[in-house]
Design a protein around this nucleic acid. Structure first.
Lengths: 348, 348
DNA sequence: TTGTACGCGTTATCAT
DNA sequence: ATGATAACGCGTACAA
């Protein structure tokens, strides 16, 4: 005989009141005499009553869960420190309130779209966190049509019905470039992320604007797909230039590490012959040689606050945009003054 | 006026049959005349009827979702290629059948336990994938008591009611050590994972057994927590030994990369002065210099098959253990013969 | 406070 | 064999 878990009907019978009243008492709603409420709670507690999420879900039309659809290749994910930390942060916001995260990792834009459609059609989640915003991101309209609530990580490039929770990359990039320029670098390159991605574009823009302010060459930009392989390719291209850069700013740590490998393989010594900086402060960057100068953000906190904001949106509470502490430069060993003799160094 | 989605009652009315019959027809169950069934399906289709996962969930007591609780520090996750690929694999199994993955990332054992309890109490998932098995893993009994179904990644060290889906690490480790021994290394160290974790233990055991077979020293083992920082520490300790190893086998790529950093920083040239091998074949390992000899497994496939197996278990179908293709050695540049002169090299 | 309809399917019981 | 009816799962919400 399986001991079924008690329902509110059981509690009602035991407490000698109606089902509805139990519901009211349990949800701390007005209209229940203090004494009755107390007795109901007591009985419920004694019987070990737990709310049925499913029943509640059906009757209130809510899922009590948030969704996160990640559209990245495992290759790009591998080694990227962002999502693990972000998700850990989301979890710290959800666990205390008994909500869950439904995660979907897809590898094509069609799969991404259908993933949102499924989440909505099945009522799996009440809202989603939109990450890796793209230009004219179709997900914003889609998610809105589907009736989901959402928050975006960063500001979209068009009007959006959803609040944004952002970390300004700009100060980090600016600081990185300024740091390199201050060290004396004149030819600073940028290994950028995909231009379809807004944060990629914004980092590139910040990069370009600092260079212009400083009156430096701003043509050394290579776009990549964020993978180690593409970071390596970009680095090879840059180092093969007749007038090669003396410093390279990478849009993520994985590419910076791959770039470091390429440089070393080609006989360049970092930072003597080439300075490099990363982005996103991965743990491993601190332990390679030379350790990686990079730009960090409080990703876990971002995750927590994004989830909290989305919960508020779902609850119909205030939902203003949130601006978190901007990215910060973390100077380590991979950046140094360029060689004093200006003769273009070529690979041995 | 919001156009509500049609329910089976709507379909029933439209088709001129009863609610129950619609359900039978929609679920391909016997007892419905062929013609009637066809008409019902047609009407349902015309009306755009979609099943309500919630209603179905409530009445059938199923969640149509799988759970994965990851109990690792973000520090360890960061840079680790396993879970992204694994989850991507899980997704490929779930998406086609309309199921979802509920992910929880926790940072303590208490949080882990309560995470499983919540998933079960709320009926969020029908089953869970147990990863990172530990010695006397309490989760197996817990999950069983909670009435969840499960599969384990790897064989637990005690009887388990759940099928295991495993990738044998042993051949990979053995191949790595054999490779190093064949190159002439006599003092091969192991930077192991936590001994609480079964795969850590198994890799260590495999390591030790090959060394014994070859008659080599097997005392050079340092246990770590899998982080880059701890991999670096272990490497420093090993390289400081009077009789330092000439090769180090790391239990993951992140530590190997950190170890490489330590070695280079101490003036050792890899692989001339020290050979190293990693584990888990991260993308970035292929692009560092020297590129990392490592051991790879088909992680994404593992994820897909684990999810499929769990779905079968939940469906009450066959559920034999599954043994996947074993880990394989991928020889790259970070391993080479030891220096011919046996004089113990010390850091400059 | 109570009674009851409701959300939306599934399934056991009955009637034809 | 075919189909209808009603109970069930478990809360929520509203009229009485």
């Amino acid at each position: 005989m399986v001991k079924q878990r008690p329902t509110i009907s059981d509690v009602a019978r035991e407490a000698g009141v109606s089902k509805g009243l139990v519901s009211f008492a349990l949800n701390d709603r007005p209209g229940v005499a203090a004494g009755t409420r107390l007795r109901i709670l007591e009985v419920a507690n004694e019987m070990g009553w737990r709310p049925s999420l499913r029943a509640r879900s059906l009757s209130t039309d809510r899922a009590f869960a948030l969704g996160l659809v990640i559209a990245r290749d495992p290759d790009i994910m591998s080694g990227d420190p962002f999502f693990p930390a972000f998700i850990a942060g989301v979890e710290t916001a959800l666990a205390p309130v008994g909500q869950s995260l439904v995660l979907s990792m897809v590898q094509s834009e069609e799969a991404e779209i259908s993933s949102y459609r499924q989440l909505a059609a099945h009522g799996r989640v009440d809202g989603v966190i939109l990450s890796d915003l793209r230009r004219d991101d179709p997900r914003i309209a889609l998610v809105n049509e589907l009736g989901l609530r959402a928050v975006t990580l960063g500001h979209p490039d068009a009007a959006s019905p959803f609040p944004a929770i952002s970390v300004d990359d700009s100060p980090g990039i600016r600081a990185a470039v300024a740091h390199l320029a201050d060290l004396g670098h004149q030819r600073i390159a940028h290994v950028a992320g995909p231009s379809r991605m807004l944060h990629g574009v914004r980092r590139s823009n910040s990069f370009a604007s600092v260079l212009r302010e400083r009156g430096l060459v701003d043509t050394l930009v290579v776009e990549t797909d964020f993978t180690a392989a593409d970071g390596a390719r970009a680095t090879r291209e840059l180092l093969a230039l007749a007038d090669r850069p003396t410093a390279i700013v990478y849009s993520n740590d994985v590419m910076a590490i791959a770039g470091l490998g390429v440089a070393q393989r080609s006989g360049f010594e970092v930072p003597r012959d080439l300075s490099i900086t990363g982005f996103d402060g991965s743990d491993v960057g601190a332990h390679i040689y030379p350790s990686l100068t990079t730009v960090t953000t409080a990703v876990q906190d971002w995750g927590r606050q994004a989830a909290e904001l989305l919960l508020r949106v779902i609850a119909g509470e205030d939902s203003d945009d949130i601006e978190l502490a901007p990215a910060q430069l973390l100077v380590r060993e991979s950046s140094a003054p360029p060689e004093t003799n200006t003769t273009t160094t070529t690979a041995p």
